[in-house]
């Protein structure tokens, strides 16, 4: 891969642009994978394999420190002058996520107002509030350990940094595991399905909105777990993060806290109301 860069680098001349094949591979993988999901499932596995390869290639370029586009000249300070390029990018991405989750939650609330039946928490709801309360605490604690990791690297305390980062990863994995356990129990024992089933027909809309909201949140947590795993790997690389250079930790942290906030709203809306 290294010589490939040397080659493309030369072609673009003085501008010094690096080429990368991974955007092409990732997009292709997305197309193949999605086509597989809607047609023939083995194709989706092929897509997933190519996606994994593309992602690995993308991250390896990143881990090797290949840089694509950097500001090497002064820029106009502007209204976001003390917000870094990547932090602004992360915040804007979070804005798009706010809209995605609002559409899902808003649609679910609207369906609730139109549903003929809705279970009462603690009365006839199949949901396990104590278990998800535990999950809520796990997620809050993981947010706390995440800021501890940031504090650790800011102060140069590598033990705290690495320990707290590992704790965050483990708490994230725990959250996802408990959710999988909860899904399993609800699906097979409580007959709560995303579709209308003959055993519990009254719970159809409830099931539909429950799985959509918690499912997409769970997918985002899983994505965060993946990011945290990568961050943990980088944290053990010598001198990758330093007290003056640790933006990656802050950015993954922002995403992680945002996912926490989504849960802060989902938990009362889905489980307690």
């Amino acid at each position: 891969m290294a010589d490939e860069h040397a080659a493309t680098h030369g072609e673009h001349g003085a501008a010094g642009h690096h080429g990368s094949i991974w955007p092409f591979v990732l997009a292709l993988a997305g197309g193949i994978g999605f086509a597989g999901v809607i047609t023939w499932f083995p194709l989706a596995l092929v897509g997933a394999a190519v996606l994994a390869a593309g992602l690995a290639g993308w991250l390896l370029e990143d881990a090797r420190g290949v840089r694509f586009g950097e500001v090497t000249y002064p820029t106009e300070p502007g209204i976001f002058k003390s917000v870094s390029i990547r932090k602004l990018g992360m915040w804007l991405f979070i804005v798009s996520e706010i809209f995605f989750f609002s559409a899902i939650i808003g649609n679910s609330l609207a369906l609730r107002t139109r549903a003929p039946f809705w279970p009462e928490p603690g009365v006839d709801s199949p949901l396990n509030i104590p278990l998800t309360a535990l999950n809520t605490f796990i997620l809050i604690t993981s947010s706390f350990t995440m800021v501890q990791a940031l504090k650790g690297i800011e102060k140069g305390n590598l033990r705290l940094f690495r320990g707290a980062l590992l704790a965050t990863l483990l708490l994230g994995i725990m959250f996802v595991s408990i959710q999988v356990y909860e899904y399993n129990k609800l699906f097979f024992e409580e007959h709560l399905t995303p579709w209308l089933n003959p055993v519990e027909p009254r719970l159809a809309t409830f099931g539909t909105t429950f799985y959509m909201q918690t499912g997409f949140h769970g997918a985002h947590v899983s994505g965060g777990v993946f990011g945290l795993a990568y961050l943990n790997y980088k944290a053990w690389k010598k001198d990758w993060f330093t007290p003056h250079n640790h933006e990656g930790v802050e950015l993954i942290g922002l995403y992680w806290h945002f996912v926490d906030i989504v849960w802060i709203f989902l938990f009362p809306i889905v489980y307690l109301i």
């Binding site: 917000v83 802050e250 942290g253 806290h257 926490d260």
Partner: peptide, 20 residues
């Protein structure tokens, strides 16, 4: 609380608070 303290919006420039 999470946005202001854990996501550091309290310590960021005011304009970033308007973004979300």
């Amino acid at each position: 609380l999470v946005a202001l303290y854990y996501m550091h919006l309290k310590y960021e420039p005011l304009v970033l608070r308007y973004v979300p």
